[in-house]
Nucleic acid binder design. Structure first.
Lengths: 158, 158
DNA sequence: AGCCTAATTGAAAATGAATTTCAATTTCCT
DNA sequence: AGGAAATTGAAATTCATTTTCAATTAGGCT
């Protein structure tokens, strides 16, 4: 999990934009900006990965000892509602969150041995999905696609 | 849930073939054929739907009052291992099972309002998925794809 | 700056699906 | 039929998720 480390100024700018978006969302809904929400959003946006509430909580606990699991859990739900995160459930049944940008529609390759999750995006597949939905007169809102198997590292040992 | 009702002789034949396949699997593994397993497999294969263990248990309870939930649960796991069922988790986090034929690779359209699940199959998408896997030197075993949105009935009321 | 109300926090409890335990029962091999 | 091994089902357990509730905090309003 990539929590900290060097970051380009572009990445930092994006994160700050997202944090502003969260603040607007809170103001709009009459909710409050708190230190906890700020810390959790920052750490979450920095990970860029598919974290569970538990994982993010443990990571945050290393730096802050006064932020509880429940708050991390609730803040992730909040980020989801505000459009900054998506909630996903893979085959292990755990709820994972990942930062979401408006125009990003990626899918996942999931290694059944080491559990690594690799993202990919394929516009042709997207278009075919839209066509399928049309065919069934279905109004598509979102989709998910996962390919399960063995990653490059694990397939040799399997 | 389509549990009973008129069935073509072709459907009946297919179900019987699958039940034979289960028996071979049990024999092969040194496991036992029991009345419960037979009833559960029959009812499950007849549904042809995406049932949870709970749903199938309730359905079976209408006819049989001596088959427990645990046995239904365990038999579904067994059917999964024997290749007669697949286990799937959709966005509601529940584990669902559906009868599986060797050459059937379908995906799902899931209505976010009424919860209806429609199957579809698209060979072009399949091929593109394989191509993506190759690109990442990933050995693909299975995939799942779900399109979430509103079905024909629900989209008008939404 | 202080007040006040509503929102937030976090520990603990509750929920609920999935899984395991265990004693009684059943299968099926010999 | 006899016996070892597998199966069953009720109940207990596990574990992630969600809710509860009393104490705390944010931020609009004087």
């Amino acid at each position: 999990m990539k929590i900290s480390g060097a970051r380009t100024s572009k990445e930092i700018k994006l994160i700050n934009e997202k944090k502003e978006k969260l603040k607007s969302f809170l103001r709009e809904k009459g909710l409050k900006s708190t230190r906890q929400r700020d810390v959790i959003a920052s750490e979450f946006l920095k990970t860029g990965e598919h974290v569970t509430a538990e994982e993010l909580y443990r990571e945050i606990s290393k730096k802050y000892n006064d932020i509880g699991f429940t708050t991390v859990y609730r803040t992730l739900k909040l980020l989801n509602k505000s459009g900054l995160a998506t909630e996903r459930v893979f085959a292990d049944h755990l709820t994972r969150y990942e930062p979401l940008s408006a125009d990003d529609h990626h899918d996942h390759l999931i290694c059944m041995k080491c559990g690594s999750i690799t993202e990919f995006e394929d516009l042709k597949i997207e278009r075919l999905q839209e066509r399928v939905a049309e065919e069934f007169s279905f109004l598509s809102v979102s989709h998910k696609m996962e390919i399960y198997g063995y990653c490059n590292k694990c397939k040799d040992n399997a």
